[in-house]
Computed example of a mutant assay.
Amino acid sequence: MARHNSRPDAADDDFEPVSKSQLKRESDALQEMGEALIPLDKKLLQSLNLPERLYNALIEAKKLTANGAVARQKQYIGKWMRQIDPAPIKELLDAIAGVSDRHNAWLHQLERQRDQLVDDPKALESFIAAHPQADVQQLRQLIRNIHKEREQQKPPKAFRELFQLLKSYHPEPALPGAELDKGDDDDKDET
């Protein structure tokens, strides 16, 4: 009696069957990746050249509000995700996360500079030397107001104003993929 080998390539000794648990984990990961696409704007989704049914499922998911309907739609999106190459989608989502991380680092840098300006008079001199176009009088006035606000335990209005002023001197750097972080306002009008 001949023995039937169910392996795809009997000559391939490296073949290891994939467990049901592993298949489920992969399926869940693809569904989560698909769910991450739901909040993205239409232009970004179109740039991925997704199959029409997956694209339409994502657009439909944006409109749903009932929990059961949303859950079913996410499963449907997961079904379609298993039928496409997820690599371009992963690259896009990673790029978006990277842009967000760089943006946060930029904001933290501005916060540190603001704190230095308020706490160290020499930091103001360094800032003025680095930014000769800066309005020195405005900077000094904001710093004085910050100290008054702290003494009088008032809301940090001048503290926030100084941060906004620093943003104008240090515009957010143009990062590769920065357009990924921008939403398309036209998507909100269509239903």
Rank of each mutant, 00 (worst) to 15 (best):
N49M: 07
S27P: 06
P156M: 02
P39C: 00
D14L: 15
K90N: 09
D13Q: 15
R112C: 12
L23Q: 11
I128T: 03
K157G: 07
Q113R: 12
Q152G: 04
S126F: 05
R144F: 00
L40F: 00
R72A: 06
D14W: 13
S126E: 14
D185Q: 15
D14N: 15
K43A: 13
E26V: 08
D94G: 04
A130H: 05
D85E: 04
S100P: 10
E125L: 10
Q152S: 08
A61K: 05
L54N: 04
P132T: 04
L142W: 00
F163N: 10
E32T: 11
W106R: 10
D9H: 09
E179D: 10
H170V: 05
I77V: 05
V70C: 04
K122A: 15
P88I: 02
N145P: 03
D186L: 10
T191Y: 14
K182L: 11
A69N: 08
D28Q: 15
L162C: 01
Q137W: 08
F163C: 05
A87M: 08
H4M: 15
P17K: 14
A69S: 11
L142Q: 03
R82F: 00
S21M: 12
G68M: 08
P132K: 01
D41K: 06
K42C: 11
L44D: 07
Q113W: 07
D28S: 14
F15L: 09
E161Q: 09
L45G: 00
T65L: 07
Y76F: 09
L92Q: 05
L165E: 05
A174G: 08
Q31S: 09
K148C: 01
S126G: 13
A10K: 13
K20N: 14
P156A: 04
G98T: 10
G183C: 12
Q138P: 10
P171G: 01
D101I: 14
H4L: 14
P155D: 07
D85P: 03
R82D: 03
E172R: 15
A71H: 11
S126M: 10
R72Q: 08
A97M: 03
M33W: 02
L45I: 01
H131T: 07
N145W: 01
N5M: 06
R112A: 15
A174P: 07
A11P: 08
D9W: 04
N145Q: 11
E190T: 12
Q141N: 13
L48D: 02
S27W: 05
N145I: 02
A123E: 04
A129S: 09
L50C: 02
I128P: 02
V70T: 06
K20T: 14
A36G: 07
R3Y: 13
E35T: 10
G34I: 00
W80F: 13
D13N: 14
P171R: 02
F163P: 04
L64Y: 03
K74T: 04
S126R: 13
S126Y: 06
N56T: 13
E179A: 06
A97K: 11
